[in-house]
Write a protein that binds this DNA or RNA. Sequence first.
DNA 1: CTGTTTTCCGAAACCGGTTTCGGCAAGAGG
DNA 2: CCTCTTGCCGAAACCGGTTTCGGAAAACAG
Lengths: 363, 363
Amino acid sequence: MQPHATSMSKPARRVTISDMADALGLTKSTVSRAMNGYTDISPATQLRVKRMAEQMNYQPLSHAQAIKTGRTRALGFVLQLSDHDAHRPFLAEFLAGLSAGASDEGYTLTVASADSDATLFDTFRSLRRDGKADGFVLPRAMVRDPRVALLRDMDVPFVLYGRQEDPTGCSWFDIRGEDAIHEAVLHLAELGHSRIAFINGGTKYSYARLRHQGFVAGMAGAGLDIDHGLVVENKVTLAEGQAAAARLLDLPEPPTAIVCAVDRAALGVYRAAAQRGLSIGSDLSVTGYDGIEDGTHVHPALTTFAVDNRDAGARLAKLLIRRLRGEDPETLRETASAQFINRGSTGPRHDECRNNISMGGKQ
Amino acid sequence: MQPHATSMSKPARRVTISDMADALGLTKSTVSRAMNGYTDISPATQLRVKRMAEQMNYQPLSHAQAIKTGRTRALGFVLQLSDHDAHRPFLAEFLAGLSAGASDEGYTLTVASADSDATLFDTFRSLRRDGKADGFVLPRAMVRDPRVALLRDMDVPFVLYGRQEDPTGCSWFDIRGEDAIHEAVLHLAELGHSRIAFINGGTKYSYARLRHQGFVAGMAGAGLDIDHGLVVENKVTLAEGQAAAARLLDLPEPPTAIVCAVDRAALGVYRAAAQRGLSIGSDLSVTGYDGIEDGTHVHPALTTFAVDNRDAGARLAKLLIRRLRGEDPETLRETASAQFINRGSTGPRHDECRNNISMGGKQ
DNA sequence: CTGTTTTCCGAAACCGGTTTCGGCAAGAGG
DNA sequence: CCTCTTGCCGAAACCGGTTTCGGAAAACAG
């Protein structure tokens, strides 16, 4: 009956709930309750209404519902400019995942920014207060995360990218970085390495704790002892990685392999190695984590663990939506594994490499 | 009855327009019109209302107004995953600028994504239709931009990051990349170079056209002839830049300097030069454009033109808001200049480098 | 065949604003 | 002094939904 409004770039008035009511011979209230699955509407009517909604392409206007419900079907994401390290390259993919996951469920994504920690809280508050976000996705979970404390206190739903030691009321998605680091260690041990160093990432983030555990577990699994002089924390940039590697390589007994918790730091290791005439993959083995593109531009390309940030975003969006729909936060926890990408920056252990730097490694 | 139990909380009820009306002894309608600056409210009352709003911290709920006005004080931004080249690294800064500029004026930012050109239009439409965006910021203006056509047709306000040849109804902000390229050419000419090559960016984007013009103007300004064999279009990635540079450097009469429209391509030039034993800055001069961080990691660091993408975002947000407030689009056009950063990848012309490739560049 | 529950839906209020309309009072003009 | 404006504001409808309340019809019980 209702002719399809051909998308002829004209007014194209939205179909409202009253249109639905008229078309169905019901009242607005019935239509509304049917759409929202109230049990006091018969299954038959419920179906009839939903079919008609499909047919007439009726979608309740989110901000019209919001005026009563307070929820506007929008997910909030606050980007913090304060942390200047990583995660910038991933942002595009991650946001794409978030918004795709959101729009799959009829949600949208509101993005705000906070230039300092001081304004961060206000940003959350006003976003929520103004109904611009029903809940939040929190990237880069921290060990003691003030955002979690705030949102718990405000009783605003949220999901974390990363895990939390005190998981009360927390939902999250995370990549099991600890498994990746574990795997990296085993991989290197199999190649004969025993003096394996670990350059870890930002200690204030949960991921660093976990990856450290992964390193410890990996070394134990390989039956190797940990030399605590070979474990460095809190290196996330290329420069920091380079400096850390320089120190390690200049030790009396340098490592023959370095596991990095972050690709950028691993690229710094390349630099330090180059300065010392060590060739990566033979004289020195290196592994990274993240799967950034720059890792493919060095020679040999960086062996690393790729993270699918788009997928992460999409899954976080869906978790948050489920939480907004009332599911128990404690059940909304997922993890995935990073994908090992062997690109040649590791190789069998060479002992002699440090005796005579200039001989170079050709196996 | 209730389909789902929503988590209850009592967070300091918002002050509504009725609260205002009561406090002032006026009616809602008067308060509303006063807030919106209607002329049929006396200046005195107008002031009184606004003062009270300040005092009570009253801010009309955007989605409550939206139900009547259709505008929700939200700017829309659609990120297109289809263009896989540049602009990823800038995204964080740009978005930060956008949301900061928006929130300065009481607006927020809704971000969506479109995985293909096919879904792009639908994304714009539904965002607008659902009142999730009052207007749009369009990044990376294209020569024939379908988004412009669509939004013009839909009569939805928008602003471009980049200029447009048919400027009817268009507002924009842009960095004058042509001036930068012009300057680069003059800089190189001053250093004695005459065989200057140009590796341009994506031809479908407006910026490429302009930068090409800048190159032409610069060569003319320096009194140099353009060898069309030294002009390459459409190279935006490191690999593409490398390949293009390889071809240029293997010419019978290779250039002694290469101007790149894009930093990543310039980094490719470094590769090609290294493969041929040419040292950047002495054997071969290179300039880039964008100011990406990787440019500081190569040796010598890349001389380039830095673009302040955060500022660009903020200015675009404000332009769009002004347009939403009714200003004439044609008056909403701004440009800024890129900042020249001389970091050492250019130097005086060396002629002998190309006579014998295998001799390698030792000065 | 009554009396009592249930089931299912309509009527109407409400949410927080905007906008149309009309009317009263003060000022202008004659 | 009496109209005619004009300035200024209140009353009420409206926007597109949600939610409370109550009542008619149907199902069940006796």
